[in-house]
């Protein structure tokens, strides 16, 4: 039993991880068939099942809230109601041309919900950022230190340089502010981003190695 609980997952991780790692260096057919199986079938199925579990968890969370009449339970009723309506619309108004990815029927209730409820809510939520970024800039872009000043100046140059106005501010020599903005993006920005990228890649390689060799067991929920 202990073997199933502790050792088996680690052995599985080692075999699958190492296999998919070394696979990249082997051009042979068997190797790419293994990769295909993992990416096209296994990963998709596991991710799908996990999502179903997640949906169960969310429904349970709201159901408990309603059952215990917790604060704001009325909103949970709205959430569950909207969930059921969308689910029924999505599973029944779809065409059924055999199995496989099916077409979202044009004009169906599900498409209507997507276009007129989901889309405007998502887009408006996202557009709140326009307000938030203005107030964040106002509060945070202050010349507190040398570094903060660098942030501020680079920010202002790029902000002006990336809209038509920037092309109207000449700097001599046939250049204008948008050229400076372009240089900042392409040179110092690219350099810093590249350095961060290299560090992140090495960290990812390290964490992957730890997972494959069973040293990193966060996914098992710590110790048992």
């Amino acid at each position: 039993m202990m073997f199933l609980r502790k050792q088996l997952p680690i052995i599985l991780a080692f075999v699958i991880g190492l296999g998919l790692w070394l696979q990249a260096y082997i051009p042979h057919r068997t190797s790419s068939a293994g990769l295909t199986t993992f990416t096209q079938s296994w990963a998709v199925i596991l991710a799908g099942c996990a999502l179903l579990l997640g949906i169960l968890s969310a429904v349970h969370h709201h159901w408990t809230k309603i059952k215990l009449r917790r604060q704001g339970f009325a909103y949970s009723i709205i959430t569950l109601g909207a969930f059921v309506v969308t689910l029924v619309a999505g599973l029944s108004w779809w065409n059924w041309p055999g199995f496989g990815a099916a077409k979202m029927a044009d004009g169906s209730l599900f498409t209507w919900i997507f276009d007129n409820v989901f889309t405007p809510l998502a887009a408006t939520m996202f557009s709140l950022l326009a307000f938030f970024i203005a107030s964040a800039a106002f509060r945070a872009f202050r010349a507190r230190s040398f570094e903060a000043t660098a942030l501020l100046i680079a920010g202002c140059i790029v902000m002006l340089g990336r809209v038509p106005i920037g092309e109207l501010i000449p700097l001599g020599g046939g250049h204008d502010l948008s050229d400076v903005a372009g240089w900042i993006m392409n040179v110092p920005n690219a350099a810093a981003q590249r350095a961060i990228l290299v560090g992140v890649i090495l960290s990812q390689v390290a964490i992957s190695i730890r997972i494959i060799f069973g040293i990193e067991r966060t996914y098992m929920g710590g110790s048992d």
Partner: peptide
């Protein structure tokens, strides 16, 4: 119950 799934849609999660 304090660790639960909200949704996997970006902005409804954010809201």
């Amino acid at each position: 119950d304090n660790i639960y799934f909200l949704t996997d849609q970006q902005f409804s999660y954010t809201a």
